[in-house]
Design a protein around this nucleic acid. Sequence first.
RNA 1: UUGGAAGGGUGGAGGAUCGCUUCCGGCGCAAGCCGGGGGAGGAAAGUCCGAACUCCGCAGGGCGCGAUGCCGCGUAACUUCCGCUCAUGGCGGGGGAUACACGCGGGAGGAGGGCUGGAAGGCCUUUCGACGGACAGUGCCACAGAAAAUUAGACCGCCAUCAGCUUCGGCCGGUGGUAAGGGUGAAAAGGUGGGGUAAGAGCCCACCGCUCCAAGAGUAAUCGCGGAGGCACGGAAAACCCCAUCGGGUGCAAGGCCAAAUAGGAAACCGAGGAGUUGCCCGCUUCGCGUCCCCGCUCAACGGGGCAGGUUUCGGGUAUUGGCUGCUUAGACAAAUGAUCCUCUCCGCCCGCAAGGGUGCAGACAAAAUUCGGCUUACAGCCCUUCCAAAAUC
RNA 2: GCGCGUGUAGCUCAAUUGGAUAGAGUGACGGCCUCCGAAGCCGCAGGUUGUGGGUUCAACUCCCGCCACGCGCA
Length: 124
Amino acid sequence: MTESAPLRFTFGREQRLKQARDFSRTRQEGRRLVCGCLIANWRVLPPEATARLGIITTKKLGNAVVRARARRLLREAFRRHQHDFNQPVDLVLVAQRGILEKGFATVERDFMTALRRAGLTKAV
RNA sequence: UUGGAAGGGUGGAGGAUCGCUUCCGGCGCAAGCCGGGGGAGGAAAGUCCGAACUCCGCAGGGCGCGAUGCCGCGUAACUUCCGCUCAUGGCGGGGGAUACACGCGGGAGGAGGGCUGGAAGGCCUUUCGACGGACAGUGCCACAGAAAAUUAGACCGCCAUCAGCUUCGGCCGGUGGUAAGGGUGAAAAGGUGGGGUAAGAGCCCACCGCUCCAAGAGUAAUCGCGGAGGCACGGAAAACCCCAUCGGGUGCAAGGCCAAAUAGGAAACCGAGGAGUUGCCCGCUUCGCGUCCCCGCUCAACGGGGCAGGUUUCGGGUAUUGGCUGCUUAGACAAAUGAUCCUCUCCGCCCGCAAGGGUGCAGACAAAAUUCGGCUUACAGCCCUUCCAAAAUC
RNA sequence: GCGCGUGUAGCUCAAUUGGAUAGAGUGACGGCCUCCGAAGCCGCAGGUUGUGGGUUCAACUCCCGCCACGCGCA
């Protein structure tokens, strides 16, 4: 991707955390923040790296349908705002029970609040 | 018409933008980009059954283990043929095979209700229905009760007789007969009525029930006109068990292929036997053995110990073992099928006489993980069928 | 995905071959004791035996279906 091309809001495989060690490293070495319906763990990467996202939905949250919905909402929030980061990070989001009855707008607001408080957003 | 219960069906439609996944075509050295197509369910769920498929095993026999148990019909993936389609393992149709998974129907049987009858019983209806065997054997039936399962059982009672007492009404005791009555119990060893008798008793008779034979009906389970027998056979096998039939184990984390790496630890056993074979035994198959080292003795045999080897168990390992395949016209492996918005209808609630307006995430349950069939459980709203209740009308 | 196992008082466990009031410890509550508390002693309550059916005269126990929880696998 060059600088002149228009911004694209994709979410390919290289943007996902897959290995268990990546999750563990991010949660142990990175920083942590609780905000509304989610818990954010992040670890700063070198500037040339691509940001990656991992989502944890535990069995405490509910059945498979509920967990899948929480996962998709959080992923969509990341996808929409992946270019608002001021530096690349590995980000692990843990869904909390509060997400179940919320719509996308509320989840998105919580996500942005968390990013601002973490100091990861670009100046708008 | 309204409400409730049970069963069955259905489980929104169209579009825009941004994404995910997979296949096909094109472009590109490549990363990738462009165009087109496919992308959750009736239960995908629980993992409760059965089957396909997989690998291991399979001369055979005995013991054991598990499942199933009335009758008839039917059904899958699978296989085969034909047609359609640019093409495919696709779609449509026909034939064949398997299921002691299951579905439908029928029949014994149990329970409730109604009718009839003096009663026993009979008939109708609703519902349940894991439904071989209780003379093959072993055991169980608590408490209560005199007696609880095989010559059943005399507590009260009834009857006879003997002795005693008597206020002549009877009373008490012994012996014997008696299962009609009382009482206990879930159950008391056919029932009701009559005869009979000292009192009673299928002791005898009628009806009912039961057992056996049996015309006839039905594919069959089974029903049974009619006849015979005084009656033999309590319950429970969802106690052990017996009989019949079926079942080898294993489960896609099965299994196969490729590449990389040296991490490959510990314990026990094996010395002529080990391993495999369904849990065990026989037997069988296969690999091996008649000595590699040390000690006890000079050697051998025998005994003890050990190296290599083999087997088993434990441990480590998902933060190094990884990838492909199995695998699919949905086909993942931190696990796709989404987000935002518009329009239309469905339905609920609120406002309104009405037209209409507002509001609610199309609003329930619940998301594939080798495939297929079934069972069970969950389910908003709407539609259909049956039943029940209430109101209104005839 | 596949295969196993367990549910009894608040907690930890019993209950014989099916037999009647489901028992024990601990905890809770009340009382005694003490100036007060602890310990001790006495008393009392607490159970749809996870749940729904079935078999049986009778079910914690036997059988079947659900629910919840836990364990194992390469």
